[in-house]
């Protein structure tokens, strides 16, 4: 459950389709964003539904930094008004996101930033962004040797020599 705090209506106007949301990042930055922009996030949409049920609007505290949050807002702003199949709760297909050229440029960041964005997108339930990040991470390791993959993924080999020579025995039992 996210932490929520009450906010003054004068801070977060609640008028028609251009209502504003107050998002608070883990580094305590207050970011005001139009609700419509963030409607792609199922997490945010559910929070807003909760506001409507209680007739009270709150700030939404998020467990990632303003740097990452601003990046996610940039993504949502770019796709404001766009229909992306993965983000349609009635049609959400299982499986992979298509290649989107803008996303590839948007996610041309270092590995750590990419991982922070995918975690934030996962938390906010923005399936299209999770998909594009997952594709970008997979692209980093595609075509690499096992040792290069370990380097990129930041993990050590924990197979015994016997297992390493016959790892398939572990999955076929």
């Amino acid at each position: 459950m996210p932490t929520i705090v009450s906010v003054d209506d004068s801070t977060v106007p609640g008028e028609g389709s251009s209502r504003l949301l107050l998002l608070v990042s883990s580094d305590n930055k207050h970011i005001v964003v139009e609700e419509d922009i963030m409607s792609r996030s199922r997490f945010i949409s559910k929070q807003v539904e909760g506001f409507e049920a209680t007739s009270q609007r709150h700030a939404i505290l998020l467990p990632f930094s303003s740097f990452v949050l601003n990046k996610v807002i940039e993504y949502c702003s770019h796709y404001r008004g766009y229909y992306l199949l993965e983000d349609d709760p009635d049609a959400a297909p299982p499986g992979r996101s298509p290649v989107r050229e803008w996303d590839q440029e948007f996610l041309d960041v270092d590995r750590n930033m990419l991982l922070r964005i995918i975690k934030a997108a996962h938390y906010l339930e923005i399936k299209s962004l999770v998909g594009s990040c997952a594709r970008a991470i997979a692209d980093m390791i595609r075509g690499k040797t096992t040792e290069e993959m370990r380097e990129i993924l930041g993990v050590e080999n924990d197979f015994t020599p016997e297992e390493e020579h016959s790892p398939s025995s572990k999955c076929t039992g």
């Binding site: 390791i141 075509g143 993924l153 993990v155």
Partner: peptide, 20 residues
């Protein structure tokens, strides 16, 4: 799920037990 079979999986399966 974005990796390709068969080209990416032989190497990926050997990364470590978690990734296997």
């Amino acid at each position: 799920s974005y990796l390709q079979w068969p080209e990416d999986f032989p190497a990926f399966l050997l990364v470590n037990s978690h990734f296997h």
